[in-house]
Design a protein around this nucleic acid. Structure first.
Lengths: 203, 203, 203, 203
DNA sequence: AATGAATGAGTCTTCATTCAT
DNA sequence: CATGAATGAAGACTCATTCAT
């Protein structure tokens, strides 16, 4: 009896199980058997719904990416179009909102990043997403700064966010979300007002 | 052919081959067979010299870590003790000097980071190293800033360095070392003079 | 082909193949590949059902042990409780009933014995079984003899059974089961009536 | 500088190391590397002196066998030719004299026995030796008993000796040499005087 | 739709042996 | 004479995938 909608349920079930498994064992030691066990289903069904392990991994990464996008988008919708600081802040907050999924998502994310270096399929996903983040930042900064300053500011903030969050993934026990937010916001503000303190840049 | 000192030669040879292999295939797909082939030796010899794959991986990470330490230490030796900016700059430059080993080292580094999340042995190595970087930065900043500001500055700079560098690893074709140096230095300088532009922090 | 109950069938199949392989190649040269080939299945399935080679070896030893126990128990059930000679004879016959599995079982048995000297897991199995044989014999003899005589009688009969059977394993072509039974029974009877011929013991 | 007699020294050194290694790890886990380490020489030399591992194993077994022969022969030399009890007793004592080499020799012996079942080379050694023991016993018993009785007596005593000793090898902590000697002698005496208590045999 | 039995390629590791020095 | 570096075959084990039911 082919239940309608069973596919959706199974897919979500398996993606969730994949996240849990990666969190627990690391991507390298994530096997189909472990995922299936965690999901409470048989191993064979994964190939059935995702065509194979790679398909499931990719779908899981897509899921994580879209969660991030959603977290950012949601906050930006609540921001007035002209409010540059607001948009930048929304991006920052959206990125650290990932922390809601906590350690699990951070590990998965990082694992995907590394994996993407050698898997074109994942690389594309990661690239698209990253480019969007960067161009968004670039655009916002360019509304206040000259192009080359804006680009550096965007580069810097993107790197700072990734770096804070990377360190959080590596040392979850010492991860201080509030400090991360504070530091990122400080950086962004400083970029926007750097014209005022230009002198400090001399070097 | 029991040549004396063969062990040293082989160890280096195998570590180099490991770096090349990780660069090429990713840590996950780095096998003993591939490393051996790259080194032009038989697979069995790896266990002979390193006790096993894990031993070789660990030795390789140790090598990468000590290269970084050396790059930083070298620059700091050339810096006067009282020169805070100089020391911080030395740390920044040392970290981006890794680029000399280029993509290969960056990928390896990142792979180790991720792997360390699930391997206590690597975790320890990574932890020790990271703590040293952080406390060095913290110390330098604390010579100019109040403790909590210094801590945030160190956190921020460490994250920024890691982030810039992480993005470089992910997008080697778009990695601009000069921009990275510029951004990191700017950040450091700004931190040191943030008292002057305190107002910008409000948020 | 998920036939229900396949596990039971495969387990038996693999244990039988193990016995055949040990008989043919000796325990030392018994490999997973050979067992699998003998069973007509793939090598991977052994780990699937027994967790690994050791698990299969242990299960096989357990099987051999329980065959022996069954052979003895069966004969003892048919013996009246007060019939000391009968019980001892049942034990003797049960032990030589192994000959039904013939050379194969004898070799396996001996291989396990030796192996058990260096493998705690097997040692335990062998120990439990041996202790049971010995205490059964001890109990029966003690119903007729003083404790120390009974213990020596049990020791002697156990050793005699093992020895006869060991020599049978080593020289299967010259193994005479009837002679073995005759010798063991004679020994047992003599022990039970040794009081009458005490004089013969002087030495 | 080819030292005269070096070969003898090395051979003995390596055989001793083999005994120690088998005692410690079991024959199955005895490797050339371990033997060489135990002997304090390089692994390569084993092939040089013994042609290979098998050669060393065989030489070691030969050594153990000749130690046993010597132990028996020595005692028999001290026995008058007509003294049947004396000769049988010499054989018994000689066999348990192995205990002087203790656990080590017992384990090695047993390991060889098992191994011999699948190695023609060892089989031959073991066979020759065993046949000698048996025919010696047979001859002595036949000086007092009719042929078929003598053969059974010899079979029984040989089996009893092997069995006692086998159980000693398996349970060295509970091995009581005096009890073993007592039981074996009792058996031998009983055989020699069984005519007197023939009635007890009925069954 | 879902299972889980089965496979076979691939991984790491061990080890006896060879050989240049 | 002796070493120990090096090999390559063989071992146990893992795992993604397939498929009959």
């Amino acid at each position: 009896m082919p239940k309608i909608g069973m596919e959706q349920i199974r897919r979500r079930q398996l993606i969730d199980a994949t996240l849990v498994t990666i969190d627990h064992f690391g991507l390298e030691d994530t096997t189909i058997a472990r995922i299936a066990k965690s999901a409470g289903v048989s191993a064979g069904i994964i190939s059935h719904y995702f065509g194979g392990k790679d398909g499931l991994i990719e779908a899981t990464m897509r899921e994580v990416l879209s969660q991030l996008s959603a977290a950012v988008a949601e906050r930006r919708r609540a921001t007035a179009h002209h409010d540059v600081e607001g948009h930048i802040n929304a991006i920052i907050e959206g990125n650290f909102d990932r922390s809601q999924v906590s350690e699990s998502a951070m590990k998965t994310w990082l694992a995907f990043w590394v994996s993407s270096m050698h898997r074109p399929q994942l690389k594309r996903l990661q690239s698209v997403n990253d480019r969007r983040l960067f161009s968004n930042l670039c655009y916002q900064f360019s509304r206040r700064l000259p192009p080359d300053k804006a680009r550096d500011a965007a580069r810097g903030l993107a790197a700072l966010i990734d770096g804070l969050w990377l360190r959080g993934a590596l040392m979850p026990e010492r991860f201080d979300v509030d400090a991360a937010l504070r530091i990122a916001r400080h950086f962004a503000n400083e970029q926007l007002h750097s014209c005022d303190s230009q002198a400090a840049l001399a070097q």
